[in-house]
Amino acid sequence: MLQLKDVESGYDESMVLRDVSIKVKQNQVICILGRNGVGKSTLIKTIMGVLKVQGGTIAFEDKELTKASATIRSKAGIGYVPQGREIFTTLTVYENLLLGFESNPNKNKEIINKVYKYFPVLQEMKNRNGGDLSGGQQQQLAIGRALIAEPKLLLLDEPAEGIQPNIVEDIQNVILDLKNETKTSMVLVEQDLGFAKAVGDYFYVIDRGTVVFEGSELIDEKVEKHLSI
């Protein structure tokens, strides 16, 4: 459903990604692995449309989206949980969640209750400002907000980074639940190899801005030199 062909992208003059080709199928979980600074977040931002594509093409459900803005891609059904959560700190938790409906044609408020079931703390804190939440709670909010849009494809950029272990577990359970119970496809950037192996259907390893390994199974000998520090 998502296809990147020879994508090049980066910030201003400096190119970060070169010749990246990636394919995501319906109901598939793709894991993107790699060390810090090799272009994983750049890739996610390029898929979302936050960064402009400098070369190559991006297609989503047979629609050409290479030049489309983030707004249009979001409306097409791509959801985004960015690294560093990027929730709206001066809006309340509830208002943050309501913004999830912007790209969802189905405005039924029932979806919020589903999110509350995943993350009960969001219901308790619903009238507090997003900025009052702890890092882990903000991450839950960012995921909840993305789920309310009911995306066909969900981009998750290191959802467990810098978060206390019990919340990491909650988040991993939600991802597993989405994989098993819904048709949502996911692109997951993950540092936790164990979890990546547990949830991923297909893997891409990125090093120095390009794909160095891909396969439906992680072969340790092949990927080790690209992942070890």
């Binding site: 936050v50 409306k75 985004y80 990027e86 809006l91 913004l99 912007e102 907000r145």
Partner: peptide
């Protein structure tokens, strides 16, 4: 709500589908 979201974080607001 949309206005406040865009003024605070333009990229994220766009990624949520706000024009």
């Amino acid at each position: 709500r949309r206005i406040r979201a865009v003024m605070q974080n333009r990229d994220m607001a766009a990624s949520l589908g706000i024009s």
